[in-house]
Design a protein around this nucleic acid. Structure first.
Lengths: 190, 190
DNA sequence: ATTATCTATAGATCTATAGATAATGC
DNA sequence: ATTATCTATAGATCTATAGATAATGC
Protein backbone atom coordinates (compact mmCIF):
# COMPACT_ATOMS: atom_id res chain seq x y z
CA UNK A 1 0.00 0.00 0.00
CA UNK A 2 1.15 3.49 -0.80
CA UNK A 3 -0.73 6.06 1.28
CA UNK A 4 0.81 9.46 0.77
CA UNK A 5 -1.35 12.37 -0.26
CA UNK A 6 0.63 12.72 -3.45
CA UNK A 7 -0.08 9.07 -4.20
CA UNK A 8 -3.77 9.64 -3.56
CA UNK A 9 -3.84 12.50 -6.06
CA UNK A 10 -2.10 10.28 -8.60
CA UNK A 11 -4.57 7.48 -7.97
CA UNK A 12 -7.51 9.84 -8.31
CA UNK A 13 -6.12 11.08 -11.57
CA UNK A 14 -5.61 7.55 -12.84
CA UNK A 15 -9.13 6.47 -11.91
CA UNK A 16 -10.53 9.44 -13.82
CA UNK A 17 -8.38 8.74 -16.87
CA UNK A 18 -9.28 5.04 -16.89
CA UNK A 19 -12.96 5.99 -16.65
CA UNK A 20 -12.59 8.57 -19.43
CA UNK A 21 -11.15 5.84 -21.66
CA UNK A 22 -13.52 3.01 -20.72
CA UNK A 23 -16.60 5.23 -20.89
CA UNK A 24 -15.65 6.10 -24.46
CA UNK A 25 -15.15 2.41 -25.27
CA UNK A 26 -18.19 0.90 -23.57
CA UNK A 27 -20.47 3.82 -22.82
CA UNK A 28 -21.04 5.39 -19.42
CA UNK A 29 -23.41 2.56 -18.42
CA UNK A 30 -21.16 -0.13 -19.88
CA UNK A 31 -18.67 -0.59 -17.05
CA UNK A 32 -18.91 -0.88 -13.27
CA UNK A 33 -16.97 1.08 -10.68
CA UNK A 34 -15.38 -2.15 -9.47
CA UNK A 35 -14.01 -2.90 -12.95
CA UNK A 36 -12.80 0.69 -13.34
CA UNK A 37 -10.99 0.55 -9.99
CA UNK A 38 -9.41 -2.77 -10.96
CA UNK A 39 -8.22 -1.25 -14.25
CA UNK A 40 -6.72 1.60 -12.24
CA UNK A 41 -4.85 -0.95 -10.12
CA UNK A 42 -6.98 -0.50 -7.00
CA UNK A 43 -9.80 -2.32 -5.20
CA UNK A 44 -13.35 -1.04 -5.28
CA UNK A 45 -13.59 -0.28 -1.54
CA UNK A 46 -11.66 2.96 -1.80
CA UNK A 47 -13.89 4.44 -4.48
CA UNK A 48 -15.99 6.66 -2.19
CA UNK A 49 -12.93 8.26 -0.62
CA UNK A 50 -12.32 9.70 -4.12
CA UNK A 51 -15.86 10.39 -5.35
CA UNK A 52 -19.15 11.18 -3.62
CA UNK A 53 -21.05 8.95 -6.05
CA UNK A 54 -20.82 7.22 -9.41
CA UNK A 55 -22.38 10.31 -10.98
CA UNK A 56 -19.49 12.46 -9.72
CA UNK A 57 -16.98 10.13 -11.36
CA UNK A 58 -19.00 10.32 -14.57
CA UNK A 59 -18.83 14.11 -14.44
CA UNK A 60 -15.07 14.18 -13.86
CA UNK A 61 -14.40 11.47 -16.43
CA UNK A 62 -16.46 13.05 -19.20
CA UNK A 63 -14.77 16.37 -18.48
CA UNK A 64 -11.43 14.57 -18.77
CA UNK A 65 -12.41 12.92 -22.03
CA UNK A 66 -13.44 16.30 -23.41
CA UNK A 67 -10.19 17.83 -22.12
CA UNK A 68 -8.22 15.18 -24.04
CA UNK A 69 -9.81 16.55 -27.21
CA UNK A 70 -9.22 20.08 -26.03
CA UNK A 71 -5.51 19.37 -25.68
CA UNK A 72 -5.41 17.94 -29.19
CA UNK A 73 -7.20 21.02 -30.51
CA UNK A 74 -4.81 23.34 -28.64
CA UNK A 75 -1.85 21.51 -30.16
CA UNK A 76 -3.27 22.08 -33.63
CA UNK A 77 -4.06 25.72 -32.90
CA UNK A 78 -0.50 26.28 -31.64
CA UNK A 79 1.08 24.74 -34.73
CA UNK A 80 1.59 27.43 -37.38
CA UNK A 81 1.78 24.77 -40.09
CA UNK A 82 -1.62 23.29 -39.18
CA UNK A 83 -4.31 23.59 -41.82
CA UNK A 84 -8.02 22.95 -41.87
CA UNK A 85 -7.35 20.07 -44.26
CA UNK A 86 -5.05 18.40 -41.73
CA UNK A 87 -7.68 18.77 -39.00
CA UNK A 88 -10.36 17.29 -41.28
CA UNK A 89 -8.16 14.40 -42.38
CA UNK A 90 -7.15 13.63 -38.81
CA UNK A 91 -10.69 13.69 -37.46
CA UNK A 92 -11.96 11.56 -40.34
CA UNK A 93 -9.04 9.10 -40.21
CA UNK A 94 -9.26 5.34 -39.64
CA UNK A 95 -7.11 5.80 -36.53
CA UNK A 96 -9.62 8.19 -34.97
CA UNK A 97 -12.49 5.92 -35.95
CA UNK A 98 -10.84 2.88 -34.38
CA UNK A 99 -9.08 4.29 -31.29
CA UNK A 100 -12.39 4.87 -29.53
CA UNK A 101 -10.86 4.97 -26.04
CA UNK A 102 -8.81 8.02 -26.98
CA UNK A 103 -11.20 9.59 -29.45
CA UNK A 104 -12.94 12.93 -29.48
CA UNK A 105 -15.66 12.87 -26.83
CA UNK A 106 -17.81 15.33 -28.78
CA UNK A 107 -18.56 12.41 -31.08
CA UNK A 108 -18.07 9.40 -28.84
CA UNK A 109 -19.95 10.56 -25.73
CA UNK A 110 -22.65 12.70 -27.35
CA UNK A 111 -25.50 10.27 -26.54
CA UNK A 112 -24.33 9.74 -22.97
CA UNK A 113 -23.88 13.47 -22.42
CA UNK A 114 -27.41 14.16 -23.68
CA UNK A 115 -28.67 12.04 -20.76
CA UNK A 116 -26.23 13.47 -18.19
CA UNK A 117 -26.18 16.27 -15.65
CA UNK A 118 -26.13 19.96 -16.43
CA UNK A 119 -22.48 20.07 -15.35
CA UNK A 120 -21.50 17.49 -17.96
CA UNK A 121 -23.59 19.06 -20.71
CA UNK A 122 -22.09 22.45 -19.93
CA UNK A 123 -18.56 21.05 -20.33
CA UNK A 124 -19.65 19.50 -23.63
CA UNK A 125 -20.99 22.86 -24.84
CA UNK A 126 -17.70 24.55 -23.96
CA UNK A 127 -15.81 21.93 -25.97
CA UNK A 128 -18.08 22.48 -28.99
CA UNK A 129 -17.31 26.20 -28.72
CA UNK A 130 -13.57 25.46 -28.68
CA UNK A 131 -13.82 23.33 -31.81
CA UNK A 132 -15.84 25.98 -33.59
CA UNK A 133 -13.25 28.60 -32.62
CA UNK A 134 -10.44 26.38 -33.90
CA UNK A 135 -12.16 25.67 -37.22
CA UNK A 136 -12.99 29.36 -37.65
CA UNK A 137 -9.35 30.25 -36.98
CA UNK A 138 -8.22 27.77 -39.62
CA UNK A 139 -10.74 29.25 -42.09
CA UNK A 140 -9.74 32.84 -41.48
CA UNK A 141 -9.94 33.72 -45.17
CA UNK A 142 -13.74 33.36 -45.08
CA UNK A 143 -15.87 36.44 -44.41
CA UNK A 144 -16.37 36.83 -40.65
CA UNK A 145 -20.15 36.50 -40.80
CA UNK A 146 -19.89 33.14 -42.55
CA UNK A 147 -17.16 31.59 -40.39
CA UNK A 148 -19.18 30.46 -37.40
CA UNK A 149 -22.05 28.89 -39.35
CA UNK A 150 -19.72 27.02 -41.64
CA UNK A 151 -17.56 25.90 -38.71
CA UNK A 152 -20.61 24.52 -36.86
CA UNK A 153 -21.81 22.70 -39.98
CA UNK A 154 -18.31 21.32 -40.61
CA UNK A 155 -18.05 20.05 -37.04
CA UNK A 156 -21.48 18.42 -37.40
CA UNK A 157 -20.32 16.68 -40.58
CA UNK A 158 -17.21 15.29 -38.87
CA UNK A 159 -19.11 14.17 -35.76
CA UNK A 160 -21.82 12.46 -37.80
CA UNK A 161 -19.38 10.79 -40.17
CA UNK A 162 -17.25 9.25 -37.41
CA UNK A 163 -20.40 8.22 -35.54
CA UNK A 164 -21.81 6.38 -38.56
CA UNK A 165 -18.44 5.01 -39.68
CA UNK A 166 -18.15 3.23 -36.31
CA UNK A 167 -21.67 1.80 -36.43
CA UNK A 168 -21.86 0.33 -39.93
CA UNK A 169 -20.85 -3.29 -40.39
CA UNK A 170 -19.50 -2.83 -43.91
CA UNK A 171 -15.86 -1.70 -43.85
CA UNK A 172 -16.10 -0.39 -47.40
CA UNK A 173 -19.14 1.74 -46.55
CA UNK A 174 -17.42 2.93 -43.37
CA UNK A 175 -14.41 4.20 -45.33
CA UNK A 176 -16.67 5.70 -47.96
CA UNK A 177 -18.51 7.72 -45.27
CA UNK A 178 -15.23 9.12 -43.92
CA UNK A 179 -13.84 9.90 -47.37
CA UNK A 180 -17.04 11.50 -48.67
CA UNK A 181 -17.24 13.75 -45.62
CA UNK A 182 -13.56 14.68 -45.89
CA UNK A 183 -13.77 15.40 -49.62
CA UNK A 184 -16.91 17.46 -49.22
CA UNK A 185 -15.50 19.52 -46.34
CA UNK A 186 -12.17 20.14 -48.05
CA UNK A 187 -13.85 21.26 -51.26
CA UNK A 188 -16.25 23.49 -49.34
CA UNK A 189 -13.41 25.20 -47.49
CA UNK A 190 -11.20 26.09 -50.43
CA UNK B 1 -54.74 -13.13 -18.71
CA UNK B 2 -55.18 -13.25 -22.46
CA UNK B 3 -53.42 -16.28 -23.90
CA UNK B 4 -54.31 -16.65 -27.56
CA UNK B 5 -51.55 -16.94 -30.10
CA UNK B 6 -52.74 -13.74 -31.74
CA UNK B 7 -52.45 -11.99 -28.37
CA UNK B 8 -48.94 -13.35 -27.96
CA UNK B 9 -47.90 -11.93 -31.32
CA UNK B 10 -49.39 -8.57 -30.31
CA UNK B 11 -47.58 -8.67 -26.98
CA UNK B 12 -44.30 -9.56 -28.68
CA UNK B 13 -44.76 -6.67 -31.05
CA UNK B 14 -45.55 -4.29 -28.19
CA UNK B 15 -42.50 -5.38 -26.17
CA UNK B 16 -40.28 -4.73 -29.19
CA UNK B 17 -41.83 -1.31 -29.83
CA UNK B 18 -41.52 -0.30 -26.17
CA UNK B 19 -37.88 -1.39 -26.22
CA UNK B 20 -37.25 0.47 -29.48
CA UNK B 21 -38.58 3.65 -27.85
CA UNK B 22 -36.93 3.27 -24.44
CA UNK B 23 -33.57 2.27 -25.91
CA UNK B 24 -33.60 5.48 -27.92
CA UNK B 25 -34.48 7.47 -24.78
CA UNK B 26 -32.15 5.87 -22.25
CA UNK B 27 -29.64 3.92 -24.29
CA UNK B 28 -29.58 0.14 -24.70
CA UNK B 29 -27.94 -0.28 -21.27
CA UNK B 30 -30.22 2.27 -19.62
CA UNK B 31 -33.30 0.16 -18.95
CA UNK B 32 -33.92 -3.33 -17.56
CA UNK B 33 -36.03 -6.07 -19.11
CA UNK B 34 -38.34 -5.94 -16.07
CA UNK B 35 -39.05 -2.24 -16.63
CA UNK B 36 -39.56 -2.80 -20.35
CA UNK B 37 -42.02 -5.62 -19.69
CA UNK B 38 -43.88 -3.43 -17.18
CA UNK B 39 -44.09 -0.62 -19.76
CA UNK B 40 -45.51 -3.17 -22.20
CA UNK B 41 -48.16 -4.09 -19.60
CA UNK B 42 -46.68 -7.49 -18.75
CA UNK B 43 -44.65 -9.05 -15.94
CA UNK B 44 -40.99 -9.93 -16.40
CA UNK B 45 -41.42 -13.68 -16.04
CA UNK B 46 -42.74 -14.15 -19.55
CA UNK B 47 -39.79 -12.46 -21.20
CA UNK B 48 -37.91 -15.61 -22.19
CA UNK B 49 -40.93 -17.10 -23.92
CA UNK B 50 -40.55 -14.19 -26.35
CA UNK B 51 -36.78 -13.79 -26.59
CA UNK B 52 -33.85 -16.16 -26.15
CA UNK B 53 -31.85 -13.50 -24.32
CA UNK B 54 -31.63 -9.78 -23.69
CA UNK B 55 -29.31 -9.51 -26.68
CA UNK B 56 -32.01 -10.91 -28.96
CA UNK B 57 -34.47 -8.26 -27.78
CA UNK B 58 -31.80 -5.61 -28.40
CA UNK B 59 -31.41 -6.90 -31.96
CA UNK B 60 -35.14 -6.89 -32.67
CA UNK B 61 -35.69 -3.53 -30.99
CA UNK B 62 -32.84 -1.76 -32.79
CA UNK B 63 -34.12 -3.19 -36.07
CA UNK B 64 -37.57 -1.85 -35.18
CA UNK B 65 -36.18 1.58 -34.32
CA UNK B 66 -34.36 1.63 -37.65
CA UNK B 67 -37.53 0.47 -39.43
CA UNK B 68 -39.44 3.40 -37.90
CA UNK B 69 -37.02 5.70 -39.70
CA UNK B 70 -37.28 3.59 -42.83
CA UNK B 71 -41.06 4.07 -42.86
CA UNK B 72 -40.62 7.82 -42.49
CA UNK B 73 -38.12 7.81 -45.35
CA UNK B 74 -40.47 5.72 -47.53
CA UNK B 75 -43.29 8.19 -46.87
CA UNK B 76 -41.07 11.04 -48.05
CA UNK B 77 -39.92 9.10 -51.09
CA UNK B 78 -43.53 8.30 -52.02
CA UNK B 79 -44.65 11.93 -51.76
CA UNK B 80 -44.13 13.65 -55.12
CA UNK B 81 -44.15 17.05 -53.41
CA UNK B 82 -41.29 16.13 -51.06
CA UNK B 83 -38.09 18.09 -51.52
CA UNK B 84 -34.60 17.75 -50.14
CA UNK B 85 -35.20 20.99 -48.24
CA UNK B 86 -38.21 19.49 -46.46
CA UNK B 87 -36.21 16.42 -45.49
CA UNK B 88 -33.38 18.58 -44.17
CA UNK B 89 -35.71 20.86 -42.22
CA UNK B 90 -37.57 17.91 -40.73
CA UNK B 91 -34.42 16.07 -39.67
CA UNK B 92 -32.92 19.23 -38.19
CA UNK B 93 -36.15 20.34 -36.49
CA UNK B 94 -36.64 20.93 -32.75
CA UNK B 95 -39.30 18.22 -32.78
CA UNK B 96 -36.84 15.62 -34.05
CA UNK B 97 -34.22 16.79 -31.59
CA UNK B 98 -36.62 16.52 -28.65
CA UNK B 99 -38.77 13.47 -29.50
CA UNK B 100 -35.86 11.13 -28.85
CA UNK B 101 -38.06 8.06 -28.29
CA UNK B 102 -39.36 8.29 -31.86
CA UNK B 103 -36.28 9.75 -33.49
CA UNK B 104 -34.06 8.47 -36.27
CA UNK B 105 -32.01 5.57 -34.89
CA UNK B 106 -29.14 6.30 -37.29
CA UNK B 107 -28.38 9.25 -35.03
CA UNK B 108 -29.81 8.17 -31.69
CA UNK B 109 -28.49 4.61 -31.52
CA UNK B 110 -25.19 5.04 -33.39
CA UNK B 111 -23.00 4.58 -30.29
CA UNK B 112 -24.98 1.58 -29.05
CA UNK B 113 -24.95 -0.02 -32.50
CA UNK B 114 -21.17 0.39 -32.75
CA UNK B 115 -20.90 -1.87 -29.67
CA UNK B 116 -23.57 -4.35 -30.82
CA UNK B 117 -23.73 -7.59 -32.76
CA UNK B 118 -23.02 -8.01 -36.45
CA UNK B 119 -26.76 -8.48 -37.04
CA UNK B 120 -27.56 -5.08 -35.55
CA UNK B 121 -24.70 -3.33 -37.32
CA UNK B 122 -25.79 -4.87 -40.60
CA UNK B 123 -29.33 -3.51 -40.17
CA UNK B 124 -27.83 -0.12 -39.39
CA UNK B 125 -25.74 -0.23 -42.59
CA UNK B 126 -28.84 -1.05 -44.64
CA UNK B 127 -30.64 1.93 -43.14
CA UNK B 128 -27.72 4.24 -43.99
CA UNK B 129 -27.94 2.95 -47.56
CA UNK B 130 -31.67 3.72 -47.66
CA UNK B 131 -31.12 7.28 -46.46
CA UNK B 132 -28.36 7.81 -49.02
CA UNK B 133 -30.64 6.50 -51.78
CA UNK B 134 -33.43 8.83 -50.65
CA UNK B 135 -31.19 11.89 -50.51
CA UNK B 136 -29.72 11.01 -53.91
CA UNK B 137 -33.22 10.69 -55.35
CA UNK B 138 -34.15 14.11 -53.99
CA UNK B 139 -30.97 15.57 -55.50
CA UNK B 140 -31.48 14.03 -58.92
CA UNK B 141 -30.34 17.18 -60.72
CA UNK B 142 -26.78 16.64 -59.53
CA UNK B 143 -24.39 14.72 -61.78
CA UNK B 144 -24.63 11.00 -61.02
CA UNK B 145 -21.02 10.64 -59.96
CA UNK B 146 -21.43 13.35 -57.32
CA UNK B 147 -24.77 12.26 -55.86
CA UNK B 148 -23.62 9.48 -53.55
CA UNK B 149 -20.70 11.34 -52.02
CA UNK B 150 -22.74 14.44 -51.39
CA UNK B 151 -25.61 12.38 -49.99
CA UNK B 152 -23.29 10.60 -47.54
CA UNK B 153 -21.76 13.89 -46.44
CA UNK B 154 -25.22 15.47 -46.06
CA UNK B 155 -26.42 12.55 -43.95
CA UNK B 156 -23.30 12.86 -41.79
CA UNK B 157 -24.01 16.56 -41.28
CA UNK B 158 -27.59 15.88 -40.17
CA UNK B 159 -26.59 13.02 -37.86
CA UNK B 160 -23.80 15.03 -36.23
CA UNK B 161 -25.92 18.17 -35.86
CA UNK B 162 -28.80 16.38 -34.10
CA UNK B 163 -26.32 14.47 -31.96
CA UNK B 164 -24.60 17.66 -30.76
CA UNK B 165 -27.83 19.66 -30.50
CA UNK B 166 -29.10 17.10 -27.97
CA UNK B 167 -25.91 17.09 -25.91
CA UNK B 168 -25.19 20.81 -25.46
CA UNK B 169 -26.66 22.54 -22.41
CA UNK B 170 -27.13 25.88 -24.09
CA UNK B 171 -30.47 26.06 -25.92
CA UNK B 172 -29.28 28.94 -28.07
CA UNK B 173 -26.21 26.99 -29.18
CA UNK B 174 -28.35 23.91 -29.80
CA UNK B 175 -30.65 25.82 -32.16
CA UNK B 176 -27.66 27.46 -33.81
CA UNK B 177 -26.17 24.05 -34.56
CA UNK B 178 -29.38 22.84 -36.21
CA UNK B 179 -29.87 26.05 -38.16
CA UNK B 180 -26.25 26.28 -39.35
CA UNK B 181 -26.36 22.70 -40.59
CA UNK B 182 -29.71 23.22 -42.32
CA UNK B 183 -28.62 26.47 -43.97
CA UNK B 184 -25.35 24.98 -45.14
CA UNK B 185 -26.99 21.86 -46.56
CA UNK B 186 -29.74 23.76 -48.34
CA UNK B 187 -27.28 26.19 -49.91
CA UNK B 188 -25.01 23.29 -50.90
CA UNK B 189 -27.86 21.49 -52.64
CA UNK B 190 -29.26 24.33 -54.73
C1' DA C 1 -53.11 -31.16 -23.80
C1' DT C 2 -50.93 -27.18 -25.01
C1' DT C 3 -49.73 -22.53 -24.47
C1' DA C 4 -49.13 -17.72 -22.55
C1' DT C 5 -48.51 -15.24 -18.64
C1' DC C 6 -47.96 -14.88 -13.68
C1' DT C 7 -45.63 -15.33 -9.09
C1' DA C 8 -41.55 -16.46 -6.90
C1' DT C 9 -36.80 -16.98 -6.68
C1' DA C 10 -31.80 -18.29 -7.71
C1' DG C 11 -27.47 -16.48 -8.71
C1' DA C 12 -24.73 -12.79 -10.42
C1' DT C 13 -23.62 -8.06 -10.37
C1' DC C 14 -23.78 -3.28 -8.92
C1' DT C 15 -23.63 0.79 -5.81
C1' DA C 16 -22.50 2.04 -1.41
C1' DT C 17 -20.71 1.40 3.39
C1' DA C 18 -18.26 -0.47 7.66
C1' DG C 19 -14.38 -1.71 9.84
C1' DA C 20 -9.47 -3.50 9.51
C1' DT C 21 -4.78 -2.65 8.00
C1' DA C 22 -0.71 -0.22 6.96
C1' DA C 23 1.20 3.62 5.63
C1' DT C 24 2.04 9.02 6.27
C1' DG C 25 2.83 13.31 8.68
C1' DC C 26 2.48 16.23 12.68
C1' DA D 1 -3.41 10.68 15.13
C1' DT D 2 -4.63 10.90 10.62
C1' DT D 3 -5.17 9.11 6.17
C1' DA D 4 -5.40 5.89 2.05
C1' DT D 5 -6.43 1.57 0.68
C1' DC D 6 -7.94 -3.10 1.60
C1' DT D 7 -11.24 -6.93 2.82
C1' DA D 8 -15.84 -7.98 3.61
C1' DT D 9 -20.54 -7.29 3.13
C1' DA D 10 -25.35 -5.13 3.04
C1' DG D 11 -29.03 -4.08 0.14
C1' DA D 12 -30.74 -3.20 -4.39
C1' DT D 13 -31.11 -4.55 -9.01
C1' DC D 14 -30.47 -7.41 -13.07
C1' DT D 15 -30.66 -11.58 -16.05
C1' DA D 16 -32.51 -15.91 -16.27
C1' DT D 17 -35.33 -19.95 -14.74
C1' DA D 18 -38.89 -22.98 -12.31
C1' DG D 19 -43.31 -24.05 -11.34
C1' DA D 20 -48.24 -22.41 -10.80
C1' DT D 21 -52.29 -20.52 -12.99
C1' DA D 22 -55.64 -19.66 -16.43
C1' DA D 23 -56.61 -19.29 -20.79
C1' DT D 24 -56.73 -21.48 -25.83
C1' DG D 25 -57.38 -24.94 -29.33
C1' DC D 26 -57.48 -29.71 -30.87
Amino acid sequence: MGHSRAAKAENHDRIVQVAADRFRERGVDGISMADLMKDAGLTHGGFYKHFASREMLVAEAVERALADGSAAADAIAANPKATLASLIDGYLSLVHRDQVAHSCAVTTLASDVARSSERVRSAYSAQVDRYVALISKLAAWLPDRKQRGLALAALATMVGAVSMARAVSDEKLSREILKSAADELKSRFS
